[in-house]
Design a binder for these strands. Sequence first.
DNA 1: ATTGCGTCTAATGTATACAATGTGGATGCA
DNA 2: TGCATCCACATTGTATACATTAGACGCAAT
Lengths: 251, 251
Amino acid sequence: MSERDSDRAVSQTVRAQLALRDLILSGRLRPGERISELQAVETTGVSRTPVRMALVRLEEEGLLEAIPSGGFMVKAFTERDILDSIELRGVLEGLAARFAAERGVSARDLEPLKESLAELDKLVTQDVVTVEAFSSYVTMNARFHALLTELSRSAPLIRQIDRASALPFASPSGFVMAQSVLPEAHQILIIAQDHHRIVVDAIENREGARAEAVMREHARLAARNLRLALRNRTHLDLLPALTLIRSPASE
Amino acid sequence: MSERDSDRAVSQTVRAQLALRDLILSGRLRPGERISELQAVETTGVSRTPVRMALVRLEEEGLLEAIPSGGFMVKAFTERDILDSIELRGVLEGLAARFAAERGVSARDLEPLKESLAELDKLVTQDVVTVEAFSSYVTMNARFHALLTELSRSAPLIRQIDRASALPFASPSGFVMAQSVLPEAHQILIIAQDHHRIVVDAIENREGARAEAVMREHARLAARNLRLALRNRTHLDLLPALTLIRSPASE
DNA sequence: ATTGCGTCTAATGTATACAATGTGGATGCA
DNA sequence: TGCATCCACATTGTATACATTAGACGCAAT
C-alpha cells in the first residue's frame, strides 16, 4: 500500500533479481557460497516463487551456478576467465562491426553512431579529467557500443553480445572507472576513442576485416585496464565485481 | 507410482522442458503463437510451477520470446537469422580453436580429438553412404566439435558455444542429415573432414590464425547445406527445425 | 456508424502449503 | 578411536489457491 511507485512498477521477480545481484556484486555473498532460498526471501522481502525465478535468471546471467543436488551457489571466476570474457566480447563485437561493414549501413543509420562519436570526442579532448567526466564517459561509451552492435542488424548476434556483456567485468565499460585513478588514464581514453573513430570509418568504407580487427583490439584495452588495476590495487573499491575472483591465477 | 524409471529420474521441470521443446520443434506450436500455461499443463501433465520454469529456460535457450505484457510466444526466425547463427557459431568455434592453438595442447590432451578424427575418417572413406552412416556421423561429428571446444580450456567460451549451439539449426550437426539425400553428399563430407584434419594439424603446430580461419569456413558448410536443402525442398521432413522459419527472406 | 468507456473474463504473477530428498550429526559397533 | 549407519532436520521441488492485470467484448453516446 505504502510502497513507492518505482517499487510497484516492477515485478517481484525483477526486484528480487536486482537485490540478489547487488548482494553478489557487492561481495556480501561470497563466491562458492550456497544461496539459501529462505534467506533470500528474508533479505529481499518477496516470497519464494519470484526468488526462485530470479535465481534461475541469475544463473542464466552467469553470476550463479546450479548445484547438482539442487539450489544455487555464487560463481567464482579466475582472472583468466575474466580476460577470456573480454576477448570473447571483442570477437563478438568484431563480428558485429564486420557485418555492419559488409552489409552496408545507410548514411541515415550511421548518423546516430557519428553523433555518439562526436559526443565522446568532446569529453576526451578536454584536458581536465574529473571523476564526473569518467562517469558520463561510461554512459556514452555504453551507448556507442550498443549503437554499433545494432548496426549489425542481426538479432541472434545482438542477443549473444548482450548476454556476453551481462557480466559486469565483461561489459564494454567494465573497467573504464578503474582508469580514472590511473596515470595512464588520458592516454588510454585517447586510444580508445581512436578505435571508435577507426571502426566508424571502416564501416562507412565497407572494410569488414578492418572493422573486425579494430574492435577486437579495442576490447583488449579493457584487459589492459584490468591488469593495471590489479597491479596497483589501491582503488579496487571502484570495481566491486572483482570480489568474484577466486584464484587470481598469477602468471 | 507406476511411472517408468526414466520418468522418475528427471525432475518435472526437465520433463516439461523436453515435452514443450518437442512440441515447438515438431511444429505443433507455430511461430508467433502464444503459449498458454494452462494448456501446457494439460499437455505435459505437470503442474504450473515446473511449466513456468521450463518456459523460462526455453526462452533462455532461444526458442521462446517473452511477451512484454506477460507470458511467452514461440520465436520466429528468418532464413537470415539462421545463417547468422551459423556464422556466429563458426566465429566462436574459431576462437576456441585459436585458444587451443595459441595456448598449446599436450599430446595427451590432443589424443581424444585425434581418435575422434580417425573414427570419422573410417566413415567418410567408405564408399557406400547409407542413412545409418549419416546418423552415426552426426553423433561422432558432435563429439569432435565438443572435444575441440573443450581444448580451449576456457569456461566462459565453452559456455557461450553451448548456448550458441542450443538452437538445433545452429548446432554443428544441424544440417548434416539434409546432406544424406543430396547428390553432393559425399563431396561435402570429404571437405568437412578435411577441415577437421586441418584444424587438428593447426592446433598441433600452434598456428592460431589458421585454426581460427578453418573453423570459420567449416561452419559455412552448414550454411551451404541449408541453402541446398531449401532449394530442393523434397526432404524437409529431415529438418523439423525449419518449421520455425517465418519469412524466408528471399534474396 | 464509429469511437470511447466500462465491465467482465481469462490469463499471468504471487504466495504458501505440502512432498520428497539430501545433508549433517549423533550414536553404536567394530 | 574410527567408520558406518540411521535418524532428524533443513532445504529444495512441486502443487495449488489467491491476487492482479491485460485484453476483449458490448453498450452507449456522439
